[in-house]
C-alpha cells in the first residue's frame, strides 16, 4: 500500500530544491558580477540534481499506474500539489536578499541532509550523502557574502540588515512540523523539521555576529502552509514560467 506521507515527505524536500533552483536561475545575467551569475547558476544546478533524484524516488514510492516520473511531477502538477515552503518561491529581491535566503536555506538543508544520512529509506540516504557536500559549498558561499556585506560599508551593512528583516518571516516555516514529517520521523525515514531549528539558528547567529549584523526581532507573522500546498500569489506565476514549455509541447525532447 502506498504510504502517502512518505511520498509527501519526499515531495517536500524535492519541491524545495526544484522551486529554489528556478528562482536562483533567474539570477543568470542579473547578478552583480559574472562570477556570481556562475555561482548562483551552479547552486541552482546542484539543487536541480537533488530535485530530480528526489522527485523520481517520490514517483516510485507513490507507485501510480503508470508511475509518475520526475518530469510528470515537476511539470504537470498544479500549484496546490506542490509541497515546498514559501521561502523558496518568493521573488528575488536584491543580491543581499538572495544571500540572506541562501544562508538560511542552505544551513537548513545541510542540517536536514546530515540528519537523513541514516534514513531507513536508502535512496534518500544516498541522495543526502551526495547533497550534503554540495550544500556545504552553498552555505559557505552565502556565509562569505553575508560577512562581506554586513562587515563592509555602511550602505552594504544597512542593506544586508534590511534583507534579513525581509526574509526572516519566511524562515520559521522551515522548522514547522507537519503530518508527513511526523510520519517520516516515526519511521526513521526523515526527521522532524523542528529538531533542526536549534542547529540552524546557532550557525546563522554565529555568522550574523561575525558580520556585525543583528538577528531580526521575532516577526509579527510568518509564512505557513507550503507543505500543505498553500502558496503565496507569486507561485502561480513561477509555475507558469517553469512549466509552460513542457505543457505546450507534451512529450517533446531533443
Amino acid at each position: 500500500m502506498t504510504e502517502q506521507h512518505h511520498v509527501d515527505y519526499l515531495l517536500g524536500l524535492g519541491d524545495d530544491a526544484l522551486i529554489y533552483a528556478q528562482r536562483l536561475g533567474e539570477w543568470l545575467t542579473h547578478a552583480p558580477q559574472i562570477e556570481e551569475d556562475m555561482a548562483l547558476g551552479n547552486v541552482a544546478l546542484d539543487l536541480v540534481g537533488q530535485a530530480r533524484a528526489l522527485l523520481t524516488h517520490a514517483g516510485e514510492v507513490e507507485g501510480a499506474d503508470p508511475v509518475r516520473d520526475e518530469d510528470d511531477l515537476a511539470m504537470l502538477r498544479h500549484e496546490r500539489e506542490f509541497r515546498n515552503v514559501q521561502l523558496v518561491e518568493q521573488p528575488r529581491g536584491d543580491f543581499a536578499h538572495e544571500m540572506a535566503r541562501l544562508l538560511w536555506f542552505s544551513t537548513y538543508q545541510r542540517e536536514l541532509y546530515t540528519a537523513v544520512l541514516t534514513s531507513t529509506d536508502e535512496t534518500l540516504a544516498g541522495v543526502a550523502a551526495k547533497a550534503v557536500k554540495e550544500v556545504d559549498y552553498h552555505r559557505d558561499h552565502a556565509t562569505q557574502w553575508v560577512l562581506r556585506l554586513g562587515d563592509g560599508t555602511q550602505e552594504s551593512h544597512d542593506r544586508m540588515q534590511a534583507a534579513l528583516v525581509a526574509v526572516h518571516p519566511y524562515v520559521a516555516e522551515l522548522g514547522e512540523d507537519h503530518d508527513a514529517a511526523r510520519w517520516a520521523a516515526e519511521h526513521r525515514v526523515g526527521v522532524l523539521p523542528s529538531s533542526l531549528t536549534d542547529a540552524v539558528n546557532a550557525y546563522v547567529v554565529g555568522v550574523l555576529e561575525q558580520a556585525t549584523l543583528a538577528m531580526p526581532d521575532a516577526p509579527r507573522w510568518h509564512a505557513r502552509g507550503g507543505r500543505a500546498g498553500v502558496h503565496s500569489e507569486v507561485m502561480g506565476y513561477l509555475l507558469a514560467e517553469m512549466q509552460h514549455l513542457h505543457r505546450s509541447h507534451p512529450g517533446a525532447s531533443w
Binding site: L45, D46, L47, V48, G49, Q50, R52, A53, V127, K130, A131, E134
Partner: peptide, 8 residues
C-alpha cells in the same frame, strides 16, 4: 556513481 547531483 555520479559526481555531482546535477552534473549534465
Amino acid at each position: 556513481t555520479p559526481t555531482y547531483s546535477g552534473c549534465p
